[in-house]
C-alpha cells in the first residue's frame, strides 16, 4: 500500500519502457515456454537431423565414412527384402487404421449422442485399458492366439475344432488384430471430440427439413465429424507403421515389419546409415500417405455434399 520511491522523471520513463518490453506478452510467453521448446529441439529435432545426415553416409565396420551417397536409399527402395517390409508395414498400418476407425465411430457416436450424464465415465472406461502397458496388451494377445493358447483350448473345449490351429498366431493377421485392439482408444477420442462439436440443432434442422435419421446422419453428422475421422486415421496409422513390439511378439516370420529391420541395423547388423535411411524412408512414406489420406477424405467430404 505504500508507493515505491520515484526516480527522476527521465529515469522513470526509460525504466517504464524497459519494463514494458520485458512485460510484453510475446516476450514473457516465449521465455516461459523456452525450456520445453529447447528440450524438444535438442532431443527431437536435432536427433532427427542426425538420422537424416547418417542416411547419406556409409559405414565400414566401426568407422563412419562421411562422403555423401544415395546408396542407402537405393538399397532401402530396391532390395526386395526392404521393399517388401515397407509395403507390408504400410498395408498393415492402413488396414489397422481402417478397422480402428470403423469400429470406433459407432462407439464415439454412442457416447457423444447417447452418453447422457455418463459421458466422461464411458470415456474413462474405454480409455483405461489403453493406459496399461502396451507390452502387456500385446503379450495377452500372444496368450490368446497361441498354439496352446486361450482361443485354441477354448474352441477345442467347445468341440469346434479337434486340434490346435496354427493359423492364429505368427502371421500378419495376428499383427492386425493386436494393433487394432491396442490403438482403439486413440481412434475413439478424436472422433468423439469432433462429434461433440456438432451443433445438435443442425441435426434437428435436417430432420425438420424432411431428412430421416439415416439421411440426416449421412448429410449432417458424418460430414461435420470428418475432421475427427481424419485425425483418428492418422493418429493410428503414423505410429503403427513403425511398430516394433507387436510384429516381434505375435508376427512370426510372416509378420515382420520395417521397425524390426531398422532395429536390426542398429543391433546385430550394425549398419547405422542403412538403418537411418530406412527410418527416413519410413517417415517420408508416412508423411506422403498422411497427406494423401487427408486429401482423399477432404475430396470425399466435398463430393458427399
Amino acid at each position: 500500500m505504500t508507493a515505491a520511491a520515484e526516480g527522476s522523471p527521465a529515469f522513470g520513463m526509460t525504466r517504464a519502457r524497459r519494463n514494458a518490453l520485458l512485460q510484453s506478452e510475446p516476450v514473457q510467453g516465449f521465455a516461459l515456454i523456452s525450456p520445453t521448446f529447447l528440450y524438444a529441439l535438442i532431443l527431437l529435432v536435432l536427433p532427427i537431423l542426425v538420422v537424416i545426415a547418417h542416411s547419406f553416409w556409409t559405414q565400414n565396420y566401426l568407422t563412419i565414412d562421411r562422403t555423401f551417397t544415395l546408396e542407402n536409399y537405393r538399397i532401402a527402395l530396391t532390395e526386395p527384402i526392404y521393399r517388401d517390409l515397407l509395403w507390408r508395414s504400410l498395408y498393415i498400418s492402413l488396414t489397422v487404421s481402417f478397422f480402428t476407425v470403423v469400429l470406433a465411430y459407432p462407439i464415439a457416436y454412442f457416447i457423444s449422442f447417447h452418453g447422457g450424464r455418463h459421458k466422461s465415465l464411458w470415456l474413462f472406461l474405454i480409455t483405461i485399458p489403453f493406459w496399461t502397458s502396451y507390452l502387456l496388451r500385446v503379450m495377452s494377445w500372444k496368450v490368446i492366439l497361441g498354439y496352446n493358447g486361450v482361443l485354441n483350448s477354448g474352441l477345442m473345449g467347445l468341440g469346434v475344432i479337434d486340434e490346435p490351429s496354427t493359423a492364429l498366431l505368427y502371421n500378419s493377421s495376428a499383427v492386425i488384430i493386436t494393433l487394432t485392439h491396442a490403438w482403439a482408444a486413440f481412434a475413439i477420442l478424436p472422433i468423439f471430440v469432433s462429434l461433440e462439436k456438432v451443433d445438435r440443432t443442425l441435426v434437428e434442422a435436417a430432420k425438420d427439413l424432411g431428412d430421416g435419421p439415416i439421411r440426416s446422419f449421412l448429410r449432417v453428422t458424418l460430414p461435420l465429424s470428418a475432421p475427427g475421422v481424419i485425425s483418428a486415421a492418422l493418429i493410428v496409422m503414423i505410429p503403427t507403421v513403425g511398430d516394433y513390439v507387436t510384429p516381434k511378439l505375435v508376427g512370426g516370420k510372416d509378420g515382420v515389419m520395417i521397425a524390426n529391420a531398422i532395429q536390426a541395423q542398429f543391433g546385430k547388423a550394425s549398419n547405422w546409415p542403412l538403418g537411418a535411411a530406412l527410418s527416413v524412408t519410413t517417415m517420408l512414406i508416412v508423411t506422403l500417405i498422411a497427406g494423401a489420406t487427408v486429401l482423399i477424405l477432404r475430396t470425399a467430404q466435398r463430393l458427399a455434399r
Binding site: 508507493a3 515505491a4 522513470g12 517504464a16
Partner: peptide, 22 residues
C-alpha cells in the same frame, strides 16, 4: 498502463507503481 499521460491517486503519481501497491 497509459501509453501517454498520467494518473495520480490522492496526489501521488501512479506511474511505475504495480497494482499490488496502489
Amino acid at each position: 498502463n497509459p501509453t501517454s499521460g498520467s494518473i495520480s491517486v490522492d496526489g501521488q503519481s501512479m506511474e511505475g507503481i504495480p497494482a499490488n501497491r496502489r
